[in-house]
Amino acid sequence: MAYDEALAARIRALVTDEPGLTEKRMFGGLAFLLGGHMAVAASGRGGLMVRVDPARSAELVAGAGVERMVMQGREMDGWLRVSGHPDVDDLPDADLARWVAEGVGFVKTLPPK
């Protein structure tokens, strides 16, 4: 499954003014990176991938439609999938902005690669 280009455009509109922003095709999706770190992506499996503070993973997955990413059979703290909305493309702008801000805010705390 290819990533949703409309969702990618919505994400892009939220991060376009971030210094050092790059886009990269990753994991079948389109990732938005700051300082070389993925902040958020339009996932190739649908929905969003969001990088967050690992210490906040449990708190953030308490929301409907949010789960830890599973990589090689392991749940990964700090990496979330947001996909439970009936159609993530219809995720309200405020909710999308909140998730994008969550990812951008966390990667800004990391040293550049």
Score class of each variant (00 low, 15 high):
Ala2Arg: 15
Tyr3Asn: 04
Asp4Pro: 12
Glu5Gln: 14
Leu7Ile: 14
Ala9Pro: 03
Arg10Lys: 15
Arg12Gln: 11
Ala13Met: 10
Leu14Ile: 11
Leu14His: 06
Asp17Trp: 00
Pro19Val: 09
Gly20Asn: 05
Glu23Arg: 00
Lys24Leu: 08
Ala31Asn: 09
Phe32Pro: 02
Phe32Ala: 07
Leu33Met: 12
Gly35Ile: 07
Gly35Thr: 03
Met38Thr: 12
Met38Tyr: 01
Ala41His: 01
Ala42Phe: 06
Arg45Asn: 11
Gly46Trp: 05
Val50Ala: 03
Val50Leu: 11
Val52Phe: 01
Asp53Ala: 08
Asp53Leu: 06
Pro54Ser: 03
Ser57His: 08
Ser57Asn: 10
Leu60Ala: 08
Ala62Thr: 12
Ala62Val: 10
Gly65Ala: 05
Val70Ile: 13
Gln72Thr: 13
Gln72Pro: 00
Gln72Ile: 09
Gln72Met: 14
Gly73Trp: 10
Arg74Lys: 15
Met76Pro: 02
Met76Arg: 13
Asp77Tyr: 08
Gly78Phe: 07
Gly78Val: 09
Trp79Met: 15
Trp79Gln: 12
Val82Ala: 04
Pro86Val: 10
Pro86Asp: 12
Pro86Tyr: 07
Asp87Met: 03
Asp87Phe: 04
Val88Asp: 02
Val88Gln: 00
Asp90Tyr: 00
Asp90Pro: 00
Leu91Trp: 01
Pro92Trp: 05
Asp93Ala: 15
Asp95Phe: 00
Leu96Phe: 09
Leu96Asn: 05
Ala97Leu: 07
Val104Cys: 06
Phe106Gln: 05
Lys108His: 13
Leu110Ile: 11
Pro111Leu: 01
